[in-house]
C-alpha cells in the first residue's frame, strides 16, 4: 500500500518519537513537535506509539492513496476535516488536507504507519543534520507498513493552551522576571522546529557572561537583544545564552501548536524537587 505526495504543502516531514541518546554527537532528539498528537493518531489506528506519521505545517498537503487506507488527522485542525477520529479512504481517493484553522501542525497517521528505513533507530527528519528522510517533495511515493493492532476509532481531543506553564530557568536570577511573567509575547514568523522566536518587552540581563552548558527541550533563552527563544525539538544541544525559564513537559504540545502572530503568556509553576 502506498501514499503518493501530490503536494507536500509548506513543510511536511516524516516523524516518530525521535532519536534519543545522541547528545554526545551533538545531535538533538527531533521527533514529532507535538508528540501527544502523533501518539493519539497512532492510538486511534491501533499502531504502536512510536509509529512514523506525517507532520504537516500550517498549510496541510495533498495525498493520494492508490490502494486506500485507514487514517487519522490529529493536532492542529484543518478547516475541511474532522480530527481525532478514524477516516476510511477508498482505493484511489485523494485527501486534500488544506490550511489549518487552529494550531500549527497537523499529523497524518495511517494504519500500519509510514514504512521508511530507520536512521540511528528513528524515522524522524532532523533538518539541521540531514538525519532521516528529507522533507517531502511533490511526486514522492511512500510505503505503508503492515497493520499492527485493532483501531479504536476515536479519542477525546487534548486542550491546547496559550498560557504556557514554566519552571524557573537556571539563570532566572539574572533577569527582572516580573516583566517576563506579566508581559504578552508574540510568536514571530522566524519560528521553526529548532526554536520559537518571540517578540515582546525585552528582558535586560544583569550579566550575560556564562559558561556554555547543555540546553533542555523547552528552555527559554534570552540572547543579547532580550527577546526570548523557546528551544524546540530540532534544538541545538548546548548554548551560551542565559535561560530564564523552561516550559513544563505537559505544555510542550501547546508550544508545538503555536502559529506566527499568536500571543502567549508565561505562568510560573513551582517544582517540588529536592536537589543535593
Amino acid at each position: 500500500m502506498r501514499i503518493l505526495v501530490d503536494n507536500p504543502g509548506m513543510f511536511t516531514t516524516i516523524q516518530d518519537l525521535g532519536r534519543p541518546g545522541h547528545g554526545l554527537d551533538g545531535v538533538s532528539r527531533a521527533g514529532a513537535a507535538d508528540s501527544q498528537a502523533l501518539k493519539i493518531g497512532n492510538q486511534i489506528l491501533g499502531n504502536a506509539p512510536n509509529t512514523p506519521g506525517l507532520e504537516m505545517t500550517l498549510l496541510g498537503g495533498t495525498f493520494t492513496f492508490p490502494e486506500g487506507a485507514q487514517i487519522a488527522l490529529t493536532g492542529g485542525k484543518p478547516a475541511a476535516h474532522q480530527i481525532n477520529k478514524l477516516i476510511e479512504l477508498k482505493p484511489g481517493e485523494t485527501l486534500r488536507v488544506g490550511g489549518l484553522e487552529t494550531g500549527a501542525r497537523c499529523y497524518l497517521c495511517v494504519r500500519g504507519g509510514i514504512d521508511v528505513p530507520l536512521v540511528a533507530g528513528s524515522a524522524s527528519t532532523h533538518v539541521l543534520s540531514g538525519l532521516g528522510p528529507p522533507p517531502l517533495r511533490k511526486g514522492d511515493e511512500l510505503r505503508i507498513g503492515p497493520p499492527q493492532g485493532e483501531p479504536i476509532g476515536e479519542v477525546t481531543p487534548p486542550e491546547y493552551r496559550k498560557q504556557i506553564r514554566v519552571t524557573e530557568g537556571p539563570q532566572a536570577d539574572l533577569f527582572d522576571t516580573e516583566i517576563f511573567y506579566q508581559s504578552e509575547y508574540t510568536v514571530t514568523a522566524g519560528s521553526n522546529r529548532m526554536g520559537l522566536r518571540l517578540e515582546g518587552p525585552p528582558l535586560a540581563s544583569h550579566d550575560s557572561q556564562m559558561v556554555t552548558e547543555g540546553v533542555p527541550l523547552g528552555a527559554i533563552q534570552i540572547p543579547a537583544n532580550g527577546q526570548p527563544i523557546i528551544l524546540f525539538v530540532d534544538q541545538q544541544t548546548t548554548g551560551g545564552y542565559p535561560k530564564v525559564a523552561n516550559v513544563i513537559t505537559a505544555d510542550l504540545p501547546s508550544v508545538a501548536q503555536l502559529r506566527p502572530h499568536d500571543r502567549i503568556r508565561f505562568q510560573k509553576t513551582v517544582s517540588k524537587t529536592n536537589l543535593i
Binding site: 534519543p20 552548558e213 547543555g214 533542555p216 536537589l275
Partner: peptide
C-alpha cells in the same frame, strides 16, 4: 535516562518523567 548533553563544566541529564524522577537520577549518579 534518554539523553545527555555534556559541556565545559557540566552535563545535562535528560530523563523520561514517566519512568523516573530527579531524586532517583541523583541517587543513581552518586
Amino acid at each position: 535516562v534518554v539523553n545527555i548533553h555534556p559541556a565545559y563544566e557540566s552535563t545535562l541529564i535528560v530523563f523520561d518523567p514517566e519512568l523516573t524522577t530527579h531524586e532517583a537520577i541523583q541517587q543513581a549518579v552518586l
